[in-house]
Deep mutational scan, measured.
Amino acid sequence: MQVTWGNVTVTFSNPEEAKKYAEKVARKLGGQVELHNGQFRIK
């Protein structure tokens, strides 16, 4: 499962870890987490 924002992509084998990481990054950037085609995207 991947977490992407800007031109950065981070890949996780565990979807739960990916979700936690995406939420943490979104909080830092003041963005929203979207699940899109099996990727968490931060907008």
Results as ranks from 00 to 15, higher is better:
8 V>H: 12
9 T>G: 01
25 V>T: 06
17 E>M: 12
20 K>L: 12
39 Q>S: 11
21 Y>W: 11
39 Q>P: 00
25 V>S: 02
29 L>A: 05
24 K>N: 10
4 T>W: 07
26 A>L: 03
33 V>Q: 01
36 H>S: 10
11 T>G: 07
39 Q>N: 12
31 G>C: 12
15 P>I: 14
12 F>P: 00
43 K>R: 13
2 Q>A: 10
19 K>G: 05
5 W>A: 04
32 Q>D: 07
38 G>S: 04
31 G>M: 09
18 A>I: 01
13 S>E: 12
17 E>R: 07
16 E>N: 09
28 K>I: 15
8 V>S: 06
20 K>R: 14
1 M>D: 04
32 Q>L: 12
12 F>K: 02
13 S>T: 13
30 G>F: 05
19 K>P: 00
2 Q>T: 15
10 V>A: 06
40 F>L: 15
12 F>T: 00
15 P>C: 14
34 E>W: 06
8 V>P: 00
15 P>K: 10
40 F>P: 03
30 G>K: 08
26 A>S: 05
43 K>L: 14
25 V>K: 04
43 K>N: 11
34 E>N: 04
32 Q>F: 14
20 K>T: 10
42 I>S: 01
33 V>F: 05
22 A>G: 02
34 E>G: 03
24 K>V: 10
33 V>K: 01
17 E>V: 09
1 M>T: 15
15 P>S: 12
26 A>M: 02
41 R>Q: 13
29 L>K: 03
1 M>L: 12
41 R>M: 13
16 E>T: 10
30 G>M: 06
8 V>D: 03
9 T>E: 04
31 G>N: 03
2 Q>Y: 07
9 T>L: 06
32 Q>H: 13
29 L>D: 01
19 K>N: 05
41 R>F: 15
4 T>E: 06
26 A>C: 05
22 A>Y: 02
17 E>D: 13
1 M>K: 08
3 V>L: 04
7 N>S: 09
6 G>P: 03
40 F>N: 03
39 Q>E: 12
27 R>P: 01
12 F>S: 00
20 K>M: 13
40 F>K: 02
10 V>M: 09
41 R>Y: 15
2 Q>K: 14
2 Q>I: 13
21 Y>P: 00
20 K>I: 13
20 K>Q: 12
32 Q>T: 15
41 R>C: 15
31 G>Y: 06
3 V>D: 01
39 Q>V: 12
17 E>K: 09
7 N>H: 09
16 E>C: 14
42 I>R: 00
17 E>F: 09
28 K>H: 15
13 S>N: 12
27 R>Q: 11
3 V>W: 01
15 P>A: 13
22 A>I: 04
10 V>N: 03
39 Q>C: 10
9 T>C: 14
13 S>Y: 08
34 E>Y: 10
26 A>G: 04
35 L>M: 13
19 K>S: 07
23 E>F: 12
23 E>K: 06
22 A>P: 00
31 G>A: 11
1 M>H: 14
32 Q>M: 12
11 T>Q: 11
11 T>L: 10
41 R>A: 07
30 G>T: 03
40 F>G: 02
16 E>Y: 09
3 V>N: 00
13 S>A: 13
25 V>I: 14
10 V>D: 01
22 A>K: 00
42 I>E: 02
13 S>K: 13
19 K>Q: 11
24 K>G: 08
15 P>L: 12
33 V>W: 07
12 F>V: 02
29 L>Q: 04
10 V>I: 14
20 K>E: 13
10 V>Y: 09
5 W>G: 02
32 Q>K: 13
40 F>R: 02
31 G>F: 07
16 E>P: 03
36 H>Q: 09
11 T>D: 06
22 A>H: 00
12 F>N: 00
25 V>E: 02
23 E>R: 06
1 M>V: 14
24 K>D: 12
15 P>T: 12
42 I>F: 02
28 K>F: 15
27 R>V: 09
33 V>E: 01
21 Y>G: 00
8 V>M: 09
40 F>Q: 02
5 W>L: 09
6 G>K: 05
13 S>D: 13
1 M>A: 10
8 V>R: 06
41 R>L: 15
33 V>M: 06
15 P>E: 10
41 R>P: 02
23 E>H: 09
34 E>H: 06
25 V>W: 09
26 A>V: 05
32 Q>V: 15
22 A>D: 00
28 K>E: 12
26 A>N: 02
40 F>C: 04
34 E>D: 07
10 V>E: 04
27 R>T: 07
31 G>S: 08
17 E>P: 02
14 N>Q: 07
9 T>K: 05
14 N>S: 14
7 N>A: 07
9 T>I: 11
4 T>V: 15
43 K>G: 06
30 G>D: 06
11 T>R: 09
25 V>Q: 05
43 K>P: 05
8 V>T: 11
15 P>Q: 12
42 I>A: 01
30 G>Q: 07
39 Q>I: 13
17 E>Y: 08
3 V>T: 01
29 L>C: 12
34 E>V: 12
12 F>H: 01
19 K>M: 11
26 A>Q: 03
23 E>W: 08
30 G>W: 05
11 T>C: 15
24 K>I: 13
28 K>Q: 13
41 R>V: 15
29 L>P: 00
32 Q>N: 08
15 P>G: 09
22 A>W: 03
36 H>M: 12
42 I>K: 01
30 G>A: 05
35 L>W: 09
30 G>L: 05
22 A>L: 05
36 H>T: 10
21 Y>D: 00
37 N>Q: 06
41 R>W: 14
10 V>P: 00
24 K>H: 13
16 E>R: 07
4 T>G: 04
31 G>V: 08
42 I>T: 01
11 T>M: 11
2 Q>N: 11
1 M>F: 15
42 I>Q: 01
32 Q>I: 15
39 Q>H: 13
5 W>D: 03
4 T>H: 12
4 T>A: 10
37 N>Y: 04
15 P>D: 05
38 G>H: 15
3 V>G: 01
12 F>A: 01
15 P>M: 14
38 G>Y: 04
34 E>A: 06
37 N>W: 02
3 V>K: 00
43 K>W: 08
14 N>E: 08
10 V>S: 03
22 A>R: 01
41 R>I: 15
28 K>T: 10
37 N>L: 06
38 G>Q: 04
11 T>Y: 14
26 A>R: 03
29 L>S: 06
25 V>Y: 03
20 K>A: 13
32 Q>Y: 15
24 K>E: 13
13 S>Q: 11
1 M>I: 14
4 T>S: 14
17 E>L: 12
19 K>F: 13
15 P>N: 08
9 T>N: 04
27 R>N: 08
29 L>Y: 11
9 T>S: 07
7 N>C: 15
21 Y>I: 03
35 L>F: 14
35 L>Y: 14
32 Q>G: 05
13 S>F: 09
14 N>M: 05
5 W>H: 09
28 K>Y: 14
42 I>H: 01
34 E>K: 05
12 F>L: 06
36 H>P: 01
43 K>Y: 12
3 V>A: 01
17 E>I: 10
28 K>S: 10
23 E>V: 08
37 N>D: 12
22 A>C: 04
22 A>E: 00
5 W>F: 11
14 N>W: 04
21 Y>N: 01
26 A>P: 00
19 K>I: 08
19 K>D: 02
21 Y>M: 05
6 G>I: 03
39 Q>F: 06
43 K>S: 12
34 E>L: 07
1 M>Y: 15
2 Q>R: 11
18 A>K: 00
32 Q>A: 11
11 T>V: 10
7 N>Q: 09
30 G>E: 04
12 F>Y: 03
21 Y>V: 04
29 L>I: 14
3 V>I: 05
5 W>V: 14
36 H>R: 10
4 T>K: 11
19 K>H: 08
13 S>L: 09
21 Y>A: 04
7 N>L: 06
22 A>Q: 00
34 E>T: 09
10 V>H: 06
36 H>L: 13
28 K>R: 14
39 Q>T: 08
12 F>Q: 00
27 R>F: 08
37 N>I: 03
14 N>P: 01
11 T>N: 13
9 T>Y: 05
37 N>C: 13
9 T>W: 03
42 I>P: 01
37 N>F: 05
30 G>I: 03
11 T>F: 13
2 Q>L: 10
37 N>H: 05
4 T>I: 15
26 A>D: 00
22 A>F: 03
2 Q>W: 05
11 T>W: 14
37 N>E: 11
25 V>G: 00
38 G>P: 02
13 S>C: 15
34 E>I: 13
36 H>G: 05
42 I>D: 02
43 K>A: 11
1 M>S: 10
24 K>Y: 14
21 Y>L: 06
35 L>E: 10
19 K>E: 07
40 F>V: 05
38 G>K: 05
41 R>T: 13
38 G>E: 04
20 K>V: 12
42 I>W: 02
23 E>S: 06
23 E>L: 09
39 Q>A: 12
18 A>W: 02
18 A>Y: 01
6 G>W: 11
39 Q>M: 09
6 G>Y: 09
36 H>C: 15
21 Y>S: 01
35 L>V: 13
22 A>T: 01
31 G>K: 04
34 E>S: 08
5 W>Q: 02
43 K>H: 11
2 Q>M: 11
43 K>F: 13
